[in-house]
Design a protein around this nucleic acid. Structure first.
Lengths: 146, 146
DNA sequence: TGGTCATGTGATAATGATTATCATGTCATT
DNA sequence: AATGACATGATAATCATTATCACATGACCA
C-alpha cells in the first residue's frame, strides 16, 4: 500500500501528541519521492513553493525532533533531511563532488554484514559502544562525467 | 622529524604563492596535536586565544582552498577542520552521540581493503566514478558510558 | 452543534555563525 | 632601503536558521 509510510508517520506523531498536517505530509511525500536527502531549499522547490520557508524550517525541525526525519551533513556546507532509518531502511550515501548531488545507496546484505564486522573490529580498540554507522562514498556521478 | 609535516605544508603553500605564516603554523600545529577534527571554536581555544576569530575563519578557509585542510560535517551541526588526507593519512571518524566528540580511527590494511571492495561493488551499479570514501561510526565514547 | 483549548501556520524580527571590507602590518625581492 | 604582494585584525555586512506573535485549524467535550 502506498500509504504505509504515511500511516507509520501519522501513528508515530499522534503518539507524541502531534498532528500529521498537510504541510508535514507534503514534506514527507517530497522525501519519499526522492532518492536522497534534500536541503531546505530543495524541499521548498519540491513542494512547489506552497510551503513557506519559515514553515519548512519549523516543520523539518519538529519532524527531526520527533525522529521522523534525520539530518545529514555532507562535503558542501549544506544541511539535508531524509526519512529516518526506521522509515527508509539502512543505507549509505554517494556524493557527486562536481554537482554535490547526493543519492542513497544500499549495500547487499552480505556487504552490509562485512561492513558491520569491520565497524565492530574498529570499535573494540577504542572502547566505544557502537550504535550506528554510515558510509559516505565520493565520486563523479554519471551526469557529470561527460 | 617532527617538522616533516610543517615542511610539507610550507612547500605546498609556497608552490601556490602563499606564505606559511605564524597564524597558519599555529592552526596546523593545533590540528597535528589532536586526534580528531576541530571546530573554529576549538581552534580558538587550542591556540590559546592568540589568533582572533576573524583570522581563524580566514586562514582555515585559505588552507582549505589550498588543500592543506579538509572540512568535516557531523551529526551535530558543526563544521570541523582536519589535516587533509595527503598529510594525515586515510582514516575514518568515530562520533560520540552523547558528547559529540569526534576522534580519528584507522582500519587495518586488510579491513581497509575490504571496505574499498565494498565501495567499488556499490559503485558499479550506480555509474559513479569513485574518488574517495569515509566511514562515520556513531557510538558512546568510554567517558560517556559511566 | 458550539465552545474551548492545544497545536499549527505564516509573516516578520532576531540571532548567530560565517564572510567581506579595509586600513595597517609584514615579508620577499630588487 | 624601496616596492609590491600577501597577511592581519577590527569591524561591518551577509546569510541561514531560529524565535516571536497574532491568527487559523483541528480535536475533544458539554
Amino acid at each position: 500500500m502506498a500509504d504505509l509510510l504515511h500511516n507509520k508517520v501519522e501513528q508515530s506523531l499522534r503518539a507524541q501528541g502531534m498532528r500529521y498536517t498537510s504541510n508535514r505530509r507534503k514534506l514527507v511525500s517530497a522525501l519519499e519521492d526522492t532518492s536522497g536527502p534534500l536541503t531546505v531549499d530543495q524541499l521548498y522547490r519540491a513542494t512547489k513553493q506552497r510551503v513557506p520557508f519559515s514553515s519548512i524550517y519549523r516543520e523539518v525541525r519538529a519532524l527531526f525532533e520527533a525522529e521522523v526525519l534525520s539530518l545529514i551533513h555532507s562535503t558542501d556546507r549544506s544541511n539535508r533531511f531524509e526519512l529516518a532509518e526506521w522509515l527508509a531502511g539502512h543505507h549509505h550515501h554517494m556524493v557527486c563532488v562536481r554537482c554535490m548531488a547526493i543519492s542513497d545507496v544500499a549495500l547487499s546484505p552480505r556487504g552490509e554484514n562485512k561492513l558491520a564486522e569491520l565497524v565492530d573490529r574498529a570499535a573494540t580498540d577504542t572502547g566505544y559502544m557502537i550504535t550506528d554507522h554510515t558510509l559516505e562514498i565520493e565520486g563523479v556521478c554519471p551526469d557529470c562525467q561527460s
